[in-house]
Design a protein around this nucleic acid. Structure first.
Lengths: 236, 236
DNA sequence: CTTGTGGCTTGATATTTATCAATGTAGAAG
DNA sequence: CTTCTACATTGATAAATATCAAGCCACAAG
């Protein structure tokens, strides 16, 4: 039995770049087969290797994308409202490459992948939006690869902090949006080394109190971090 | 003065997934503004950060995509005929994230980015092909990230060798397609460590004579490498 | 308040990887 | 055939990073 999606969720979803410009009839057709569900924290939403039956949209809360191999695990990304994830698998009708779990209590919309592919075939604006989104995702992962291969862990951390600072409108003090163990994994290091890396940034004016970061001398930190738009800019 | 593209190159280019299904008139319109050029080895074709004026297609030879930061350089991928590169930058009209140089004497087709975007807007099949290609590229980079973050250098090398073996139709002996220094950079290690890594794989039946690799016991190497379709399969 | 619990930090140590310096080697040019 | 050059290899060492083992701290449950 199919419940469908509450109309109260429509505006949030319509606000997504991916769906903003598409034909209203198509939009409604897409959501007709969809549903919305609330999940507690630490729930596995998808498992890498599974067939991609649904395009997922985070409406509230947050979701971690991660991968496993040979008993090891690494955090790939954190998805925050309002955005989709696993678009590429949906489009290609290929297995998920990453697993996903809720980090906190989250509200997730699920759109059947076959509906996405069907509407994609008949709605040019939707197709264009998908292309834009995929190109964006691709470029993000390329930047991440450059970050990993060209920088030491200390350099990755300092550039991460500068990016977060920018997100907080350049405030000298801000909160880390994820726990440190996940940040460590995302940055490709152990929690122990993240601790030591924070200490290693003290000489450049980085102060840490729990989850709160204070950057006392941004110029100094930038001189060390050498941020580059071709790695650290989210926009382009 | 504009020379255009020799019609003799059309069949090769038409064979590309990206262009195979598109309308013939659009195909010709796309190529009308394009041209083909022969380059000697080691020529810089594009520089990261530059505006993306052309979609590039490798017709023969090979091209390395690489990136620099803070005096360091890393090899990101090798492009072989017949394929495109920097599609995402073209679509987004955003700066290149990677530089490109010829590895050998190469024949390259250049299609003005604005033409690609214009035809994309009017040709649904072309749009669909672009989506498929971008999704493929995205998934490749995600796999690469997993390879880098979840595996040691020895594991990366052994899985790389198994992938190359598969490309050589499973032959016990095959040639490395790129020089070792580039392979090292691609795998995220130094040339010195690649040498040592090859030695470290001797106990698993890997023999090296110059560029020729021999895998005497594939099962044994696989037991060590633990290849996964979610990292090592090119298809999905 | 007490007691867990889970995450964070710290120090000691081991492993992995990079760097530096020297030598070997194969192919191209003369 | 030599000589040159660029790449590859090797060994010694240094640096970066991971692992292991405590201990610490904040917060939630009893």
């Amino acid at each position: 039995m199919h419940i469908g999606m509450p109309e109260s969720d429509y505006p949030d979803i319509r606000g997504l770049h991916l769906l903003a410009d598409m034909n209203e009839a198509h939009f409604r057709a897409l959501l007709r087969g969809s549903y919305v569900q609330n999940f507690p924290p630490q729930i596995d939403l998808i498992e890498e290797g599974d067939p991609s039956d649904f395009l997922h949209i985070v409406l509230s809360g947050s979701v971690e994308l991660y991968s496993r191999w040979n008993g090891r695990e690494t955090s790939m990304a954190t998805v925050r409202p309002v955005s989709t994830f696993i678009l590429a698998a949906t489009i290609k009708d290929a297995p998920y490459l990453m697993s996903a779990r809720t980090l906190e209590k989250s509200r997730i919309a699920l759109i059947p992948s076959q509906d996405v592919r069907a509407i994609f075939d008949v709605d040019g604006k939707f197709a264009r939006a998908i292309v834009a989104e995929l190109a964006q995702c691709y470029r993000s992962v390329v930047k991440n690869t450059k970050d990993l291969k060209l920088r030491t862990s200390l350099e990755r951390l300092s550039n991460y902090l500068l990016r977060q600072q920018k997100r907080s409108d350049g405030a000298a003090s801000f909160e880390l949006p994820i726990e440190k163990r996940r940040l460590a994994s995302f940055l490709g290091m152990t929690p122990e080394n993240l601790s030591r890396a924070f200490k290693g940034l003290q000489p450049y004016g980085v102060k840490v109190h729990g989850n709160r970061i204070e950057i006392t001398d941004q110029r100094d930190l930038e001189r060390f971090a050498r941020p580059s738009p071709l790695i650290d800019d989210f926009k382009t």
